[in-house]
Every structure is written in C-alpha cells, then in structure tokens.
Computed example of a mutant assay.
Amino acid sequence: MAPVQRPASSSDSDPRYANIDEKKRKRMLSNRDSARRSRIRKQKQLEDLVNEVSALQKDNGQLSEKISVATQRYMEMENANNVLRAQAMELTERLRSLNSVLHIVEEVGGYAVEIPEIPDPLMKPWQLPCPIQSIMASADVLEC
C-alpha cells in the first residue's frame, strides 16, 4: 500500500489526515506486536526442539548402554554354553566308552548287563532343539 502524502497546504488539524495517521499508527503498533509475538513463538519452538534433542540424546545414550550390557551378557552366556557343550561332548564320550566296556563284559563274561541308551541330544549335541544363531552387531553402528 502506497503511503498517503499530504498536500503541502493541509494542516495537522484536518480530521481526514488525523484519522489516516491514527490508523497508520495503530497498524504499525499491531505489526510490531505481531512481530514480537512471532519472535517469541519461534524462540519457544527453538527451545522446545533443543530440549527434545537433549532428551533424545539422553535416551540414545541409555539405549546404547543397555545394548552394551545385553551384548556383554550375551557373550558371557555364549561362553558358558560353549563350556557346557564341551562338557556334554566329553560326558557323551565317557558314556560311550563305558557302554563299550559293558558290551565287552556282556560278551566275554556272559553276564546279562543292562546297557543304558545314550539319549539323542547327547549323541548329537550340535542338533539342539533351539538352533544357535550368531548375532553380529557392534556398538559403533549405533553411535551417532
């Protein structure tokens, strides 16, 4: 909107121009107030986003720590399972040896010996009911 220019001969007491000046002054004040509210609103949005970033970074750190702990516990369990598998294989071998001795005693000595069956899971420890699946992940992938 082009500014209204007063004729050189008009006086400040002319009611037409006083009304225009008053409207212009009110519009300027309204625009200033609107701009101030807009700046305050934008500042608040910025603060909210900064707070959200901080909260998300904190959550990310906590999740990374939980993943690290879970990974450590997984590795400990995997090591314990490996020890138990090795022990099961060793015990299965011993049971086979004892069964062989019992077969020999039965054949040579003529004794009726009850020879226990070796259960399937011990015969094939690598065929467990729950298959083992390696999980390959590193904490580096999760860091930003």
Rank of each mutant, 00 (worst) to 15 (best):
M89D: 08
A8T: 04
S100C: 11
P129T: 12
Q62M: 00
Y111D: 01
A8G: 01
V50F: 03
L98I: 14
M28V: 08
R16I: 01
L142Q: 04
Q57V: 09
M28Q: 15
Q133M: 10
N99Q: 13
L56D: 08
K23S: 08
A137Y: 13
A2E: 12
A8S: 04
D140F: 01
E65H: 08
V108A: 07
G110I: 14
V83M: 08
K23W: 05
R36F: 12
I104W: 06
N79T: 02
L102W: 09
I40N: 04
P3V: 03
E106N: 09
L63H: 08
Q87D: 11
I40H: 04
R73K: 15
T92S: 13
V105D: 03
S34L: 14
L29N: 11
R27H: 07
Q5G: 02
R32G: 07
S9V: 04
L98D: 13
V83C: 01
D21V: 07
G109C: 06
R32C: 04
S34R: 15
I118V: 12
V69L: 10
L128W: 11
N82F: 11
Q5Y: 09
A80N: 05
T71Y: 01
L56M: 10
D140C: 03
I118T: 03
P119S: 09
N82Q: 06
R27W: 01
G61T: 14
K58A: 04
S100K: 04
K124S: 13
A18L: 10
K58G: 01
I115R: 03
K23R: 14
E90I: 07
K44E: 11
V4L: 03
L128Q: 14
H103R: 14
K66I: 04
A139H: 07
Q43K: 10
G110R: 03
D59N: 09
E93N: 15
I40C: 09
R16P: 00
W126C: 05
N60Y: 01
V105N: 02
L128K: 11
S34M: 14
M123Q: 15
C130P: 00
L56N: 11
S11G: 14
L128P: 00
R41E: 08
H103L: 12
S11A: 12
E47K: 15
E143R: 07
E143K: 12
E47N: 07
A8V: 11
L102R: 04
K24M: 03
V83H: 06
S30P: 01
K44M: 07
R94V: 12
L63S: 02
S9F: 13
R6N: 02
Y17S: 00
S34E: 13
L122G: 00
R36G: 01
T71E: 03
Y111G: 00
A80M: 03
N60E: 05
E76Q: 12
V50D: 09
M77D: 02
N81V: 07
D33T: 14
L122W: 00
R37G: 05
E143W: 04
K42D: 05
D12S: 05
A2D: 10
M1F: 10
I115L: 08
M1Y: 09
A2W: 10
P125W: 00
